[in-house]
Structure formats: structure tokens, C-alpha cells
Amino acid sequence: MQIHLPDKAPVLLSGPNLVAMTDEEFFDFCQQNADLRIERTANHEIIIMSPTGSRSGKRNSRLNGQLYMWWAQHANLGETFDSSTGFTLPDGAVLSPDASWVSAAKWNALTAEQQEIFAPVCPEFIIELKSAKDSLKVLQRKMQQWLRAGVQLAWLIVPQKETVYIYRAGQPEPEIVQGFEQELSGETVLPGFRLRLAELR
């Protein structure tokens, strides 16, 4: 089945055939619609989004570039992933953060077959980058979902207001950072990583 979106608003698809999709069928469905961004809820509803706009794509490229540069010096610690990567969470949802990192212990515990599809693993670190059309409330709920799944450190970056919400495991409320003149620390999750927010303007 191929999907065509009439506009840039996310579309929620549901129905017996979609809910009954196996993980393998859902993966194939995503490959058939590779030009779209597709996620799946824990109830197997399918969320379809159009590709990001150019400005968001530029910002996403820059933050992934900074994460990659850190990884090049710490490759033994784990693996980094871009925004086209889906992860199957313990509740059955399949989510694709804009950037993520999985520890070597978690990644190496997967089989080669699991690594080829939407790996059944929750990253320890993720970044979500808000585009102009994204709903902040929806993204904030998504961040809580990531924490419940096992993420240790998560950043929700809102370039339009130069604001970052920092979510940490075990903390009920995020820390709010204002202004892009500073850098964010990867803390103990990504030791030595610093994200230069000024590059995301």
C-alpha cells in the first residue's frame, strides 16, 4: 500500500488490517513508503508525516553532525543513529527520534536480523527537534513516552523560541534551558559530548 499526503499535517491511520500488521509487515510497509516519516503507536495506529522542511533538515543535519564527531572519538561506547531510524519500544510503539545513541552493550546484544529492522531496543539518549508545524504538547508527551521506555537523557529542542527541554530518567519534570548561546552537555550518558546550540539557528 502506498500513501500520498495532501498536506504537511500528520495523518493517523487505524483499522483492523493495520492493527493486525506484524512487525515484519509494518517494516515492509515503511519501505514501500520510504519518502514519508512513519511511526506506530503502542495500539498499532500508524502516524504518517511528510518529509521535514528545508530549515528543519538543515538543523537536523547539524545536530547529527555534532553527534557523529563525538562518536568518532568514542566509537567503542555505542552507536549513533539519524532521524530515519525506527526503534521498537517495549510497549510495541515504533518511534524515530531525530538523533539517538544506543550503548554498545545494548546494540551488541541484538541479533543481526534485529539490527536490520526496527531494532527492539530503547536508546539511552535521544534528541527531538521541533519544526515550525510540530505541536509542542504532542512532542512533550512523546518525550515522556521515551522516558517510560528507558531513555536516560533526552533533549527536546525548540529552535523557534531558542528553548531546550532536558528530560532525565527519574526526574518528573524537565529542566528548561533558554537561549542558544550555550552548549548542552551529554552528562554521564554521553561523556564529553557538547552540543553547540548556536549552530541550530
Rank of each mutant, 00 (worst) to 15 (best):
A132G: 00
A104L: 03
E39K: 12
V164Q: 09
D28T: 14
N108I: 00
S56N: 15
R168M: 04
P191K: 00
E124R: 10
I166L: 07
Y165W: 14
N17K: 15
A104P: 06
V177T: 11
E183T: 10
T80Y: 14
Q32R: 15
K106N: 05
L67R: 04
W70N: 04
E199T: 12
K137V: 11
N33R: 04
K142V: 04
V121F: 13
L184Q: 01
N76I: 09
Q2T: 13
R201G: 11
V158F: 07
S135N: 10
T111E: 10
R196A: 08
P159L: 01
I166H: 06
Q115T: 05
M49H: 12
W101M: 04
A42R: 15
W155Y: 11
L184S: 01
L110P: 06
I38Y: 09
K106P: 02
K142H: 14
N108T: 12
T111N: 08
L18E: 02
L77Y: 13
Q145L: 09
K133S: 13
S83K: 10
L195H: 02
Q32M: 07
P16G: 01
F180T: 02
L190Q: 02
K8W: 15
I47D: 03
L129R: 03
N33H: 05
I117G: 00
G86E: 09
F81L: 00
I126A: 12
M69F: 15
V164T: 11
G186R: 07
Q145Y: 07
A20P: 08
P159E: 09
E79H: 15
Q152W: 06
S135W: 15
E25K: 13
G150S: 02
L156K: 05
W107M: 00
A34Y: 13
V138R: 11
D91H: 10
L139S: 08
Y167G: 01
L190H: 01
E25L: 05
T163V: 08
P6D: 06
L36H: 11
A105C: 07
I127S: 06
L153F: 03
A109N: 04
M21H: 08
S96L: 00
E39H: 13
P16E: 07
S61T: 12
F81E: 02
N76M: 10
V189L: 01
T41W: 15
Q31A: 12
R40Y: 10
P159V: 05
R194W: 13
L156C: 04
L156H: 06
Q182F: 01
P6V: 03
Q140M: 10
W70P: 02
A34C: 04
A169R: 15
N43A: 12
V158A: 04
N76P: 00
A154F: 10
Y167P: 01
V94L: 00
